[in-house]
Design a binder for these strands. Structure first.
Length: 264
DNA sequence: ATGGTCGACTCTCGA
C-alpha cells in the first residue's frame, strides 16, 4: 500500500448538515482517498455518517454544538483516530478542531486553526500558541523522514500572493507577520506546501468571503486552506488544484475544495 | 464605504 497512489482533499463545510448536497455528490464525482472537513458545526451524536457510508466512505468526526467540528472521510480503513492535542493544555474545543488518523499507511492530521478574531484579542494569542503546540505534536508523534499529511483550514495566507489585497490586510489575523511566522515555524519542522510546490501563480484562493458580492468572479479571496506534506511524500506530488463548485440555484455560497494527488 | 451574508440557534455570535 505504501507505494500506491493517494488523493486527498480538504473542505471547510460551514456546517456539514447543510452541505451534504454539496459534499456527497462531489465525493461521487471525485472519489478521493481522503477528504478532510472543517467547521462541521455538529455534535457527534448528530453527525450524518450514514450519508458517507452509503457512498462507500468511512468517516470519523469530533464536534461540538454550533461551532467548530472536524471530520475525516476515507474510502479505506481509518486507523488510529485521535482528537485534540496530546498536551496538558488540551481542551474540548481543541478536540473539535484537531483530528488525526492513518489511511493506507499515511498519517493524516486535519486542523481547523482558531481564526484569532483580532490582533489585540486573547484568541489571537491562542492562535499563535496553537502552531507551537502543533509543532510539539509533530515532534512527539511523527517523523520528518516518513510520509505525513497536514491539512485543513489553517487560517493563514502564507505570503502576499495568497491574499487579494495584501497591503490592506497587514493587520489582519490571517495575514499579520506574527501569524505567518507562526505557520512558518511549523513548516520548518519538515513540511512542504504541496499546492505552492506545483502552482506558483498568484490569485489562487481557497476562501471567498460570501459577504463580498461576486467575490469569486472578482477574485477577492484568500489561500488559507492548505495541504502540506513531509518531503518524502511531497516528492510524489503530481498535481494540486482548487476545485470551485459554484453555488447552486436557490442555494447560497460557493464551495472550494483543495485537492492534491500523489503518485507511487 | 469599515459594509456585506450565511448557519446555528435564540438572538446574537462567529466567520
Amino acid at each position: 500500500m505504501k507505494n500506491d497512489n493517494f488523493i486527498i482533499a480538504t473542505f471547510n463545510t460551514n456546517s456539514i448538515r447543510s452541505r451534504l448536497h454539496i459534499v456527497i455528490p462531489w465525493l461521487e464525482r471525485n472519489p478521493v482517498d481522503v477528504l478532510c472537513m472543517q467547521e462541521t458545526k455538529v455534535q457527534d451524536k448528530d453527525f450524518p455518517k450514514e450519508a458517507f457510508n452509503k457512498i462507500g466512505y468511512n468517516v470519523i468526526y469530533k464536534g461540538q454544538k454550533s461551532y467548530n467540528g472536524v471530520a475525516i472521510a476515507g474510502k479505506h480503513e481509518i486507523k488510529d483516530m485521535a482528537a485534540g492535542f496530546d498536551d496538558s493544555e488540551n481542551s474540548p474545543e481543541d478536540e473539535a478542531r484537531l483530528i488525526r488518523c492513518v489511511v493506507k499507511d499515511i498519517p493524516v492530521v486535519n486542523a481547523y486553526v482558531p481564526q484569532g478574531r483580532a490582533l489585540d484579542h486573547m484568541y489571537f494569542q491562542i492562535k499563535l500558541r496553537w502552531f507551537e503546540r502543533l509543532r510539539d505534536l509533530f515532534d512527539r508523534n511523527y517523523s520528518t523522514d516518513e510520509p505525513l499529511l497536514w491539512c485543513g483550514d489553517l487560517n493563514i495566507a502564507p505570503d502576499s500572493r495568497d491574499v487579494y489585497a495584501p497591503d490592506s490586510y497587514l493587520d489582519h489575523v490571517c495575514f499579520h507577520e506574527d501569524a505567518r511566522k507562526a505557520l512558518e515555524k511549523v513548516k520548518e519542522w519538515g513540511f512542504v506546501d504541496v499546492f505552492r510546490k506545483l502552482n506558483t501563480d498568484p490569485d489562487q484562493y481557497t476562501f471567498y468571503d460570501y459577504r463580498i458580492p461576486n467575490a469569486v468572479k472578482r477574485r477577492l479571496g484568500w489561500r488559507i486552506d492548505h495541504i502540506l506534506a513531509t518531503a518524502a511524500l511531497a516528492e510524489r506530488a503530481e498535481k494540486a488544484y482548487i476545485d470551485i463548485t459554484p453555488r447552486l440555484a436557490q442555494k447560497p455560497s460557493d464551495h472550494t475544495f483543495l485537492v492534491a494527488e500523489f503518485g507511487s
